[in-house]
């Protein structure tokens, strides 16, 4: 890639900026992946104008075809911003890359207008292709990282969301567990339960596993550990929500739950808990 090529492209971009923006804008907005529901036309236009300015500036100073020089810093920062904000809005990676790839056609158009020498035109088109492909790839890499961060944050949030300890009655706690009980989740479950036992002075805790799809030996071991730890804090546990298929599976696995009170439903467990705490719910005669 010659610098002359890049420099000349930069000049025509600056000269024909208006035409390019118009064409690019309509390509982006008409692209069938364009999510009009997720982003406004105005936002697209602003991002485009800013990008084109930084892009032609970087082209003018371009030193190598790897786009690693600091003349590309501003472009990369802007692209990272665009990718991350689109990832957050729920765009797919291809939607995000379309931002860059849809610039190809307008740039080809103005190149054909401005470079009549066929050899120069060929070089210019090649340069544009190489550079835009690299930048497009860059947006998808940033996008990927952005999604991963969002997903891992959501998982963290789920950790806390899905393990609420609720006080059912005086001295009775319930822990409705939902989802996969992997080791980091059970750690959180156990800690929040023990804390609540201390805070409320509860003597019974109901661990409800209705929402846990698979109870394998690891999950069983976590449950048994939680029960043992609660016992040390002075609270007995009842495991409820054991569906028939789970009960059969536990028996085949050979896991011994005989040291723990188990009940089919949370309601059954609640009755046992009331009895244990010498409490009673009565129907009021009217």
């Amino acid at each position: 890639m010659t610098n002359v090529g890049c420099d000349q492209i930069a000049q025509v971009i600056q000269k024909d900026e208006k035409i390019i923006l118009e064409q690019w804008g309509s390509y982006q907005l008409s692209s069938f992946t364009m999510r009009r529901d997720l982003i406004s036309e105005n936002e697209v236009k602003q991002e485009s104008r800013k990008f084109l300015q930084l892009f032609s500036g970087a082209l003018q100073n371009n030193k190598n075809d790897k786009l690693t020089g600091n003349e590309w810093d501003d472009v990369r920062v802007l692209l990272a911003d665009v990718s991350l904000s689109r990832a957050k809005k729920g765009f797919s990676p291809s939607d995000t890359a379309t931002f860059i790839f849809s610039l190809k056609q307008p740039l080809f158009n103005i190149a054909r207008e401005n470079f009549k020498d066929i050899a120069i035109l060929a070089e210019v088109l090649w340069n544009i292709t190489v550079i835009l492909d690299k930048l497009g790839l860059y947006t998808t890499e940033v996008y990927q990282k952005g999604r991963e961060e969002i997903i891992s944050r959501q998982q963290q949030e789920m950790l806390e969301l899905s393990t609420p300890v609720v006080q059912l009655w005086e001295g009775i706690l319930a822990l409705p567990m939902i989802g996969t009980l992997d080791s980091s989740r059970t750690q959180v479950v156990m800690e929040s339960l023990l804390q609540e036992i201390v805070d409320t002075g509860a003597t019974i805790a109901i661990l409800d596993i209705t929402g846990v799809p698979t109870v394998d030996t690891l999950v069983a071991q976590h449950l048994l550990k939680t029960v043992a730890a609660a016992r040390l804090m002075g609270a007995d546990c009842i495991i409820s929500g054991i569906r028939p298929q789970i009960a059969q599976t536990i028996v085949h696995l050979g896991v011994d739950l005989t040291s723990v009170i188990t009940k089919a439903t949370l309601a059954d467990a609640f009755l046992v808990a009331l009895e244990r705490t010498k409490q009673k719910i009565v129907k009021v005669a009217v």
Partner: peptide, 27 residues
Amino acid sequence: RQKVRELAIKAGFNVVNQTKFITAASE
């Protein structure tokens, strides 16, 4: 596990067999 569940349902396993197989796979 999710894939095993999906294919077990597709094969027509009953709930007990599904659960047993998924649990074995998990182990």
